[in-house]
Design a protein around this nucleic acid. Structure first.
Length: 617
RNA sequence: GGUCCCGUGGUGCAGCGGUCUAGCAUACGUCCCUGUCAAGGAUGAGAUCGCGGGUUCGAAUCCCGUCGGGACCGCCA
């Protein structure tokens, strides 16, 4: 009866003998030992006479064998045991009889012959199978997160996360970094993401903001002489989620004084080589990490965080096709757009249906269409061949280096659309063609970002990284003549198509920081009000400094082979930023609001979004 | 704010206008079974197909709306 949770059947006062081993530790050399194991019933195989129980804890699985000839009581007790019951087993380790060892289990050479079993707690039939790693509805997984965390893949990711962070801490500690906590209740700063706000009861009408990152604090720590700082920092941004974005997430935040870009990058590179070497069987593709400029990345891959595990580089064919007789190409070229191609290896053999699907995909990514040319043994098959002529077709094949059997896919549009479409098509092809080795980590730096970009809404310059990022020394004069062309001391770290870190050498001189703010359209008074504290601090001997923040959730997700950072976080939120486990956010008592001086606007939108009933309830 | 995908016994899937009184696997109950490890065998129970409306002689199936989950665009220094 798994519903039977009566007090009599739950001997909670009886904590049996302390466990002597975990369920992952026993080996052949332990044969003969008397042991006590505690754990959850992973699976039970009842042969009538013999009963086998795979006992699970977070360390592994151990087979417990119940033989009525050894203990009738234990065997009888095991008959009533069901999956996910918590039990204690007292028994003897025995090498398994020849022919019955299980090479797939770490403990497969032995079994525990049970002399006694104590049920520590019963379990209802779980809402999904804990003992297998099949896909389950995300909502259900989040609602029963404590059961999901028992499953192997999620449990392993959480364990790996701990090991990774522990190793990072040790590495940085050995190099004189101090881990320093910074406030969670802090001040709202403009720009960047939307803040989460916390009402300040003692200052009615005013609010704290949760930090989007400890940016200013870590720079102030440099001014304070803390020299080398890091923190495993929770960050909060009230923006829409993605599979790689949660409203709260964790960064390894780091800052160093008296450094240039190479110092920070070198430190991080050394740390990651050490950490990944210890924490994952995956192989780093190339050491030292290659560096690619932002401009180069956009040109060759169409995005600033390309997956470098495979080639499939984009080729600019604007010059070649822009003047041709094909209207689509001419239009894109003459209106200042671009024409770029990607070569699909073996794509000439694709069926009409497959090529159509690729075109449809390109449309869904924003392109108006996809022009293709198949390089077959009997010649080039292409809808636009007749419009451009054989000579241009031959040049196209040559410049894209397409070979026999390949398919050339071309997008002609604005540079933004071309790059966005082809970079996503490239990712799609990498996956479809199996080019992205899951056992490889293609770590690389992206450098030479522009300092500023045009904010069309405000009609001013805005920062591409953060407002404290320094321009390259040689580029400072450009701030006066051509701000958009100035390159910065920013560096991003990418891995397998994700941005896993970003940082920069900062501005540490008040005058330069004020000049950059001026370019962004802030008046002096405004700057003083918003960033005065830090600018004032800069006047008391701010050392040159720079730092970086690594996205730990993303790194863990990559190592775990997860497609979402939800699978790297113990208690994540869903796509609509709700915590389905605890039922947050939720309405609060009227009295709480009164105390805070807050009046909640009621309306259809408000009341419907505050309904916190979980699905299936 | 927008686009797209998915909601069918506890779970995972199939069915996509009548043959569905809804199929399969697994989980669950009972029984048999002493070397299994996704144990095996027998048997039983369990779903008005997320919800509401519409089209139709007839809807799990088509349409609209809504709710829930997910992917993406915008957004995210």
């Amino acid at each position: 009866m798994n519903e039977d949770s009566s007090l009599a059947s739950n001997p909670w006062t009886v904590m049996p003998a302390k466990r002597t081993h975990t369920c992952g530790s026993l080996r052949k050399s332990d044969a003969g030992s008397a042991v006590v194991l505690h754990g959850w019933v992973h699976r039970r195989r009842d042969h009538g006479g013999l009963i086998f129980i795979d006992l699970r804890d977070r360390y592994g699985l151990t087979q417990v064998t119940l033989d009525p000839n050894v203990s009738v009581e234990a065997h009888d007790a095991a008959s009533g045991i069901r999956n996910e019951y918590v039990i204690s087993v007292q028994g003897t380790v025995r090498e398994r009889p020849s022919g019955t060892a299980n090479a797939n289990m770490a403990t497969g050479a032995i079994e525990v012959i049970a002399g006694g079993i104590t049920i520590l707690n019963v379990s209802k039939t779980p809402p999904f199978n804990v003992n297998e790693d099949v896909a389950v509805d995300e909502g259900l997984r989040l609602k029963f997160r404590y059961l999901d965390l028992r499953r192997a893949s999620l449990r392993d990711a959480i364990v790996q996360r701990h090991r990774l962070i522990k190793r990072m801490r040790d590495f940085l500690d050995e190099r004189d970094f101090l881990e320093i906590e910074t406030p969670i209740l802090t001040a709202s700063t403009p720009e960047g993401a939307r803040d989460f706000l916390v009402p300040a009861r003692l200052s009615p009408g005013e609010f704290f903001a949760l930090p989007q990152a400890p940016q200013q604090f870590k720079q102030l720590l440099m001014v304070a002489g803390m020299d080398r700082y890091f923190q495993v920092a929770r960050c909060f941004r009230d923006e829409d989620t993605r599979s790689d974005r949660q409203p709260e997430f964790t960064q390894l935040d780091l800052e160093m004084a008296f450094v240039d870009e190479a110092d920070v990058m070198g430190t991080i590179e050394a740390m990651l080589i050490d950490v990944f070497g210890a924490c994952t069987p995956k192989r780093i593709q190339s050491i030292p990490f290659p560096a690619v400029t932002y401009a180069d990345a956009m040109e060759r891959y169409g995005c600033d965080r390309p997956d470098l595990r495979f080639g499939l580089e984009l080729v600019d064919v604007t010059g070649l096709l822009g003047a041709s007789g094909f209207g689509v190409f001419r239009a894109a070229s003459s209106s200042g757009g671009r024409i770029k191609a990607i070569v699909v290896p073996g794509g000439a053999a694709w069926s009409r249906r497959e090529v159509d699907a690729l075109t449809e995909l390109a449309r869904s990514f924003g392109a108006k269409g996809l022009a293709t040319a198949a390089i077959g043994a009997d010649g080039i098959r292409s809808p636009f061949r007749q419009h451009v002529g054989d000579e241009v077709m031959a040049s196209l094949v040559a410049s894209t280096r397409a070979g026999l059997g390949d398919l050339i896919a071309i997008v002609a549009d604005t540079a933004v659309v071309v790059n966005a479409t082809l970079s996503r098509l490239r990712d799609h092809l990498g996956a479809k063609l199996g080019l992205a080795d899951p056992n490889v980590l293609s770590l690389a730096w992206v450098v030479a970002f522009p300092l500023l970009e045009r904010d069309e809404e405000r009609g001013a310059w805005t920062f591409t990284h953060n407002p404290f990022c320094a321009p390259k020394d040689s580029e400072v004069p450009l701030l006066e003549t051509d701000p958009g062309a100035a390159l910065s001391k920013q560096y991003d770290l990418i891995c397998n198509g994700f941005e896993i870190g970003g940082g920069s050498v900062r501005i540490h001189v008040r005058a330069l920081q004020e000049r950059v703010f001026a370019l962004m359209g802030y008046g002096k008074a405004e700057v003083q009000a918003l960033f005065g504290t830090m600018l004032d601090a800069f006047e008391y001997g701010a050392p040159p400094h720079g730092g970086i923040a690594l996205g730990l959730d993303r790194i863990v997700a990559i190592l775990a082979g997860a497609s979402s950072i939800r699978d790297a976080i113990a208690f994540p939120k869903n796509q609509t930023a709700r915590d389905l486990l605890m039922g947050a956010p939720s309405p609060v008592a009227a009295r709480q609001l009164t105390e805070l001086g807050i009046q909640v606007q009621t309306g259809p939108a408000i009341s419907s979004s505050s309904a916190s009933a979980p699905p299936g309830g």
